[in-house]
Design a binder for these strands. Structure first.
Lengths: 213, 213
DNA sequence: CATAATGTACGAAACGGTTAGCATAATAGG
DNA sequence: CCTATTATGCTAACCGTTTCGTACATTATG
């Protein structure tokens, strides 16, 4: 439903606002139903704009999906970059990093779902996102710095930073990604606040137990 | 494309065979493209049967999807049930259990993908599978037995079996589920045999380090 | 012949995408 | 200062295809 122009604001709408409004709605829809399951018409309807505008600004469904994916990945990597725990002792830094990652996943289930989708599509679109690899490298570098410090202090074993990232990511990701099947299979509501708090501490324990001497 | 009947087998085809052939093809398609992305016509084409038969035996797309999901879950739970490590010492039993789970995920990526799909759909279909909860309970019971034995022997801390299952499952699942995005982000091919072997040992290490005293 | 199994062809709706054109704002020429 | 021109943001209606599902006819077998 397009917004009618009143006499008071009979100017064209703000393009940036329209774009980001579309992206926001599309992110929800794609995360919820996947690339194939999401409907352009439905996205358009939930927008303050129209279907025509989606094609005007993004070109097509796939491009819109890609734009959504990019926005989502940019967001998490930005958050990871802004967190700087390197001044802390290694164990505290690692702990903080894990908690940070855990919280991000919990707070951004739509990111988790988009990544699931992308894996279902064999990662067909993620490769096209510019600059993502650089940001990924910096995440690994940051973890490596923590490990090195811990090893130097005699606290940590020398684990591979990519392995470490994978382990942390797996535990944080699964906690959100498999929430529904896990709930159905084992009757555990992983969305509940107390369950999450418990699991959060546990994930920290698991990783620290593995890395520490 | 229906299979032409040779003179030797000019009977109507075996219904069970037709059914299971459809299920097999459908599993691949749904795993690969999701419920919304898979096409009934395409599934039919890859079958030895026809679209007509899909509706004849299963009723519709959703029902077929559900049947596929059921078959897939039944398969993993059956495999888990058949593995009996309880005669081993607790640490060896747990190790074997983890390796078993890891291998199953690696060998059945289509199961992993179906579960991802199901979570994207908020677990809308999984609840309808009969008897699944019983089998799930038995998986937990088996883990609990191992933990109890380990605790009695002074080897293990008393961890919750559901928590343990979740941790094992997360590490094994992610290894397969996020293969593509992880490859794109970090240049690691988790499908390679040596990478997998390394990761397998690592997952065992992580869990044991957490559980053992 | 009755019944289970199957092939063919088609309908209706959904869906991605496009065509045609309008309104406003900015800008350039007289 | 005033008009002509152009670029931008936008709407509404439409189009061709895909896709799920079905109606109807037919075949094989007990």
């Amino acid at each position: 439903m397009a917004k009618a122009r009143t006499a008071a604001e009979s100017r064209p709408n703000d393009p940036d606002e329209t774009r980001s409004n579309i992206l926001e709605v599309a992110a929800r829809e794609f995360a919820d139903k996947g690339l194939a399951g999401a409907r352009i018409d439905e996205i358009a309807e939930k927008t303050n704009s129209s279907k025509r505008m989606i094609y005007y600004y993004f070109g097509g469904k796939d491009e819109l999906y890609r734009a959504v994916l990019e926005r989502s990945y940019s967001s998490i990597r930005a958050r990871e970059a802004e967190a700087d725990f390197e001044s802390l002792p290694a164990d505290q830094a690692l702990r903080a990093q894990i908690e940070h990652s855990f919280d991000y996943h919990v707070q951004h289930p739509e990111f988790v779902r988009l990544v699931m989708n992308e894996n279902i599509h064999h990662g067909a679109h993620i490769g096209h996102i510019e600059g993502l690899k650089d940001r990924n490298r910096s995440v690994i570098a940051s973890l490596k710095a923590i490990i090195d410090k811990g090893v130097a202090a005699g606290q940590f074993r020398p684990v591979d930073p990519v392995d470490l990232h994978m382990s942390i990511s797996a535990l944080c990701f699964y906690n959100v990604s498999n929430r529904y099947t896990f709930a159905s299979n084992f009757g555990v509501d992983m969305g509940a606040a107390d369950t999450q708090a418990r699991r959060r501490a546990q994930v920290v324990d698991i990783i620290l137990a593995w890395v520490m001497n």
